[in-house]
C-alpha cells in the first residue's frame, strides 16, 4: 500500500491524531506518558472499548442501541445484589450470569426491532428508561457499596496476568472475538450486507431479521458483562450507574469511522475511537483543562468525523451524452471500513 492510500485509512488518521494528542499532553505533563499512567488509561477505557464493539455491530445494520448504559447498570445491580446476599457464589457464576442477563435484555430489543418492526431508536429509547426503572424496583433505590460486596467480586478484574489486569484481558478477548466474528464468519459479513443494502441482502438470501435480532443480543450480552466489570471497578452499584454513557459509546463508534447509515465500520476503528475519547478524558485533568472541554472536544471531533465521512457522497449524473467518459473516481474514496 502506498503512502497516500495509507494516509486515507481512517485508522491511520486516528493513530496519528492520538500520537499528536499524547505528544501534546506529554509536553505539558511528562508523567502522563509513563507506562503505569498509560496502563491506567487503557484500563479506564477497557469497558468503553467493549461497549463500542457491541454498539458497532448494531450500527452496522442501520440500528442503534440506546439502552446499553441502562442494561449495564441493571445487570451490574443484579450481580451486586447477588454478591451481597450470596457472597459464597463463585466468581465464575457472576461471570456467566452477567452476559446472560444482558443478553436477555438485548433479546427484548432485538425481538421488538426485528419482528415487531419498531424502529430501533424508538425501541431502545423505551428500554433505556424501562431498564433504568427496573434497577429502582430491584434495589428499592438503595445502593450497594464497597464493604457489602464479596471479596472475589471486587478482586477478580484487578487480578493481573503477565502484568496486565484481568479487565484488560477480558476486553481484549471480547474485541478480538468481535473482530474475528465480523471478518471471518458468514454471519458477521452478512451484517455489512444488511446495513449496506438491505434489499440486495434479501436477494442473496440473508435473513435480515435474524441478523438484527443477533446484533442486539450481542450488544446486550457485552453490556451485561460490562455491567459487572463497571460495578466491580468502581465498587458501587446504584440507580444512576453510567447514566448517559450510551452517548459516549456511540461517539466512540462515530469517531472510529462507523457510518450511522449502516454497512461501514471496523473493530480497529472503533477501538481507536474509544481510545481517543479515553485519552482525552484522562489527559485533560492531568494538564488542568476543565472536564467541560472534554465534551466540547469530543463533540468537535465527532462533527469532523461525520463531515469527512459525507465528503465522498458527491452525486454523479447519469451520463446520457454518449461521448462523455465516466468521471474518474474521486481520489478520496476509500476502503469500506475506512472512509477518509
Amino acid at each position: 500500500m502506498d503512502l497516500t492510500a495509507l494516509a486515507r485509512r481512517r485508522e491511520v488518521v486516528l493513530l496519528v491524531l492520538i500520537a499528536l494528542l499524547l505528544a501534546a499532553v506529554g509536553a505539558r505533563a511528562p508523567v502522563f506518558l509513563t507506562p503505569a499512567s498509560l496502563g491506567d488509561v487503557l484500563t479506564d477505557t477497557a469497558i468503553l472499548l467493549m461497549l463500542a464493539c457491541g454498539q458497532m455491530a448494531v450500527i452496522l445494520t442501520r440500528g442503534i442501541d440506546l439502552s446499553v448504559a441502562s442494561n449495564m447498570a441493571f445487570t451490574g445491580m443484579c450481580t451486586a445484589l447477588l454478591s451481597k446476599y450470596h457472597p459464597e457464589l463463585p466468581i465464575a457464576v457472576t461471570l456467566a450470569l452477567a452476559p446472560l442477563i444482558g443478553f436477555c435484555l438485548g433479546a427484548v430489543n432485538g425481538a421488538l426491532i426485528a419482528w415487531v418492526k419498531i424502529p430501533p431508536i424508538v425501541v431502545t429509547l423505551g428500554t433505556l428508561s424501562a431498564y433504568r426503572g427496573m434497577i429502582f424496583i430491584l434495589s428499592g433505590g438503595a445502593s450497594v457499596v464497597t464493604h457489602e460486596f464479596s471479596r472475589p467480586y471486587l478482586d477478580f478484574p484487578r487480578q493481573s496476568l503477565f502484568g496486565v489486569s484481568a479487565l484488560l484481558w477480558i476486553a481484549l478477548v471480547v474485541c478480538a472475538g468481535m473482530a474475528v466474528f465480523l471478518n471471518f464468519s458468514r454471519t458477521g459479513r452478512s451484517l455489512y450486507a444488511v446495513g449496506g443494502n438491505p434489499l440486495a441482502a434479501r436477494y442473496v438470501g440473508i435473513g435480515i431479521e435474524r441478523c438484527q435480532f443477533l446484533v442486539y443480543c450481542l450488544s446486550g450480552a457485552i453490556a451485561g458483562l460490562c455491567g459487572y466489570l463497571w460495578v466491580s471497578r468502581y465498587a458501587i452499584a446504584f440507580t444512576e450507574v453510567a447514566f448517559g454513557y450510551e452517548l459516549t459509546v456511540i461517539a466512540a463508534c462515530v469517531i472510529g469511522g462507523v457510518s450511522v447509515a449502516g454497512g461501514i465500520g471496523s473493530v480497529s476503528g472503533c477501538l481507536l475511537g474509544g481510545l481517543f475519547l479515553g485519552i482525552i478524558g484522562n489527559a485533560l485533568p492531568v494538564i488542568q483543562v476543565s472536564p467541560f472541554w472534554q465534551m466540547a472536544i469530543s463533540g468537535f471531533v465527532i462533527l469532523c468525523a461525520v463531515i469527512v465521512n459525507s465528503r465522498s457522497e458527491a452525486r454523479k449524473g447519469k451520463l446520457i451524452l454518449r461521448e462523455t467518459e465516466p468521471p474518474v473516481p474521486a481520489p478520496l474514496q476509500v476502503r469500506p471500513e475506512t472512509p477518509s
Binding site: 455489512y192 449496506g196 443494502n197 440486495a200 454497512g263 469500506p336
Partner: peptide, 10 residues
C-alpha cells in the same frame, strides 16, 4: 442491486 461499500470479491 449490490453493496457499494464492500469489495468486488465480497
Amino acid at each position: 442491486v449490490m453493496f457499494d461499500d464492500l469489495t468486488v470479491a465480497e
